[in-house]
């Protein structure tokens, strides 16, 4: 049976490994093995869970930061559709 102190040391090692992966995990940029390892750690580590929650909220706040102007996107889309429909003369 694993002693309490030994378990604490193991958990701390996991924190050191998982901590730097949290942002990539949040961004969906980790490989499957890392995803499993991070997810398993998050099951019991409150500190890393709070850290992830903080980054998730930062990402959410940033995502709502700015929306491009609809009219500019519409103009560009029309320009692209004109290119797609009119062919080389559209370049003139």
């Amino acid at each position: 049976m694993m002693g309490r102190r030994l378990r604490q040391m193991r958990d701390m090692r996991e924190c050191l490994h998982v901590g730097p992966q949290l942002q990539s995990y949040l961004d969906g940029e980790c490989d499957p093995a890392t995803v499993r390892r991070v997810a398993a750690h998050l099951e019991y580590c409150r500190k890393c869970g709070l850290e992830l929650a903080a980054y998730r909220e930062i990402k959410r706040a940033l995502a709502t930061h700015e929306q491009p102007a609809d009219d500019a996107v519409a103009r560009l889309r029309a320009f692209g559709e004109h290119l797609a429909g009119a062919g080389p003369e559209a370049e003139l």
């Binding site: 491009p68 500019a72 996107v73 560009l76 889309r77 692209g80 559709e81 290119l83 797609a84 429909g85 062919g87």
Partner: peptide, 19 residues
């Protein structure tokens, strides 16, 4: 074919390109 490819590959990316 150029116009078809442009419509297929480029037009869906216009908003991302602008962002």
């Amino acid at each position: 074919s150029r116009q078809a490819a442009f419509a297929k590959f480029v037009l869906p990316e216009v908003e991302v390109l602008y962002r």
